[in-house]
Design a protein around this nucleic acid. Structure first.
Length: 498
RNA sequence: CGGGGCGUGGCGCAGUUGGUAGCGCGCGUGCUUUGGGAGCAUGAGGUCGCACGUUCGAAUCGUGUCGCCCCGACCA
């Protein structure tokens, strides 16, 4: 019995999250520490995310390509900051053959099959990609290059959590090359906006957009933009990043082009990515103690129909009606599932699909057939409605948009209720006291890394974003740093982060 | 890498002073059931993480080792 449900968010947020991911059938642990199996239900969610994002990339002029998993170690030696950022968490391939052990019991690495140069399993692909770009780019006419790839990467993280931080994860990484700084800047901001729109319109997760501080920016970037969401335990979660790499990689790889004026110049670059971490952010934004709550636009199954009937004769009546409504829904473009399992009780099925986050359930039993009406239940609010059978499909279709909007409104209201503006250190420290989050804390900062580090040391909060536009007009006014009292140009957003 | 926990049927666990492994859930079959996580009957399923040691005898004791999970430190 006890293994049917999940812990409540209140009792133990971390356990709640973990159990939810497992019980909602999104993912499972694998044999290797920190790696996860993404199960069909979780992968379907990822596929829906991919499709939406991929369409948005294409619509902004990008094309897909694929670069190799293995990268020569020497490539990483070329960009100093980049190496420093990733060296500590690399998986390295050193050999290419296994042989039987001398005692015949099992396999061993063949010492004679050592690679001349070790290969790194990509933690990110800037280096392989720039190795190619250098060959591809001769002239300003070869620019811009606007390529994205869908791939897996490996980062040997010390501490992992399903979806939020796994040793291997799936993501997309865009890598673009431009003739000018301004064009690269526009690209980085275009993608930032794509990410913001995806989070808000598809995931129903409102995000802050902004610049990362020097401490938080990508290893090898000139500057980094990000989207940041707020979880239900009031921590920040970085949901996507877009980096302006300046000429750093072009200089490291010698990527030059001849301008229209005939001068040799270094290329400007961007890179940007979102990963399966988005699934973690989505879970943490909307789900509840009954399991996953999935925004309809991304839900693998948008409507589940539960036909009821205590015997064969009753099922012979309800099943065809369920099938008919399912077909109507399919025709309306809705992803639908009819749960005809006979051994499971209706109550079991309700809980089962609620755990898996299906936005709308249609209950269809003898009573409904008799009255010519079906019962629809909303996953997000639990509300039930009774609707004439002729209108059920359209009603369920329309509910999708309602729920999508409602989830977003709710998440936005939650974020606003957990965004605090403070001006004194006492208030600031009080918000971050203890184990919990603290929400988004909008405060003045003197702009130095030293101050950010000191604040982080004292409170565990870091700067999540330096807003590009003030969240409210007064955020853009000058003030004094919440810690040092030194002058500050604008407020920035602090939070404890995942 | 530090702290904690755990390795026993698919999952969750019990197993006393060492005596040859059990419970719940799940699974198969049958019957009765089905409107918020059904019941009864019956059946299948385990080299007790691994190695070495102590012993007539080890899931149990000792030593070593491997792995996983959680909390930190680290970090897209």
């Amino acid at each position: 019995m006890s293994n049917l449900g999940i812990p409540s968010r209140e009792s133990n947020y971390a356990d709640w999250y973990n159990e939810l991911v497992l019980k909602a059938d999104l993912a499972d642990h694998s044999a290797v520490r920190g790696c996860m199996v993404i199960k069909p239900h979780g992968y379907a969610l990822w596929e829906n995310m991919q499709r939406a994002l991929d369409d948005m990339f294409k619509a902004t002029g990008h094309v897909n390509a694929y670069f190799p998993l293995l990268i020569p170690k020497s490539f990483f030696e070329r960009e100093a900051e980049h190496v420093a950022g990733f060296a500590k968490e690399c998986a390295v391939v050193t050999h290419h053959r296994l042989i039987e052990k001398p005692d015949g019991k099992g396999l061993m690495v063949d010492p004679n099959a050592k690679l001349e140069e070790e290969l790194i399993i990509r933690p990110t692909s800037e280096t392989v990609i720039w190795n190619s770009y250098t060959k591809w780019i001769q002239s300003y006419r070869d620019l811009p290059i606007l390529i994205n790839q869908w791939a897996n990467v490996v980062r040997w993280e010390l501490r992992t959590r399903l979806f939020l931080r796994t040793a291997e994860f799936l993501w997309q990484e865009g890598h673009t090359a431009h003739a000018t700084y301004d064009e690269a800047e526009t690209e980085a901001l275009t993608i930032l906006d794509v990410y913001r729109r995806f989070a808000e319109d598809w995931m129903a997760v409102p995000v802050l957009t902004g610049l990362k501080s020097e401490n938080e920016k990508f290893a090898g970037a000139d500057h980094t933009y990000c989207i940041e969401a707020l979880t239900q335990d009031v921590r920040a979660i970085q949901a996507g990043t877009s980096h302006h790499l300046g000429q750093n990689f072009a200089k490291a790889f010698g990527t030059q082009f001849q301008s229209a004026e005939g001068k040799l110049e270094y290329v400007y670059a961007t890179s940007w990515g979102v990963s399966t971490r988005l699934i973690g952010a989505l879970v943490m934004a909307h789900s509840d103690d009954k399991g996953l709550v999935c925004p309809p636009k991304l839900a693998p199954i948008q409507v589940v129909i539960v036909p009821m009937g205590r015997d064969e004769a009753a099922r012979a009546l309800t099943h065809p009606v369920a099938d008919r409504i399912a077909q109507e829904l399919i025709d309306l473009g809705i992803r639908v599932k009819v749960d005809k399992r006979e051994k499971e009780s209706p109550g079991f099925k309700y809980n089962y699909w609620e755990m898996r986050g299906v936005p709308v359930r249609i209950e269809l039993g003898p009573r409904e057939l008799e009255s010519g009406q079906a019962v629809l239940a909303r996953r997000d609010t639990g509300e039930k409605a009774t609707v004439g059978l002729e209108r059920v499909a359209e009603f369920a279709r329309d509910l999708q948009a309602t729920i999508q909007q409602s989830l977003r409104d709710r998440a936005l209201a939650f974020r606003e209720a957990n965004t605090h503006r403070v001006d004194t250190w006492e208030e600031f420290a009080a918000l971050f006291e203890g184990e919990g989050g603290g929400g988004f804390v909008v405060a003045h900062w003197d702009g130095t890394s030293e101050t950010e580090e000191e604040i982080s040391k004292r409170t565990k909060a870091t700067i999540r974003a330096i807003p590009l536009k003030p969240l409210i007009p007064s955020d853009g006014e000058p003030g004094v740093c919440v810690l040092t009292g030194k002058p500050s140009k604008q407020r920035v957003v602090f939070a404890k982060a995942y």
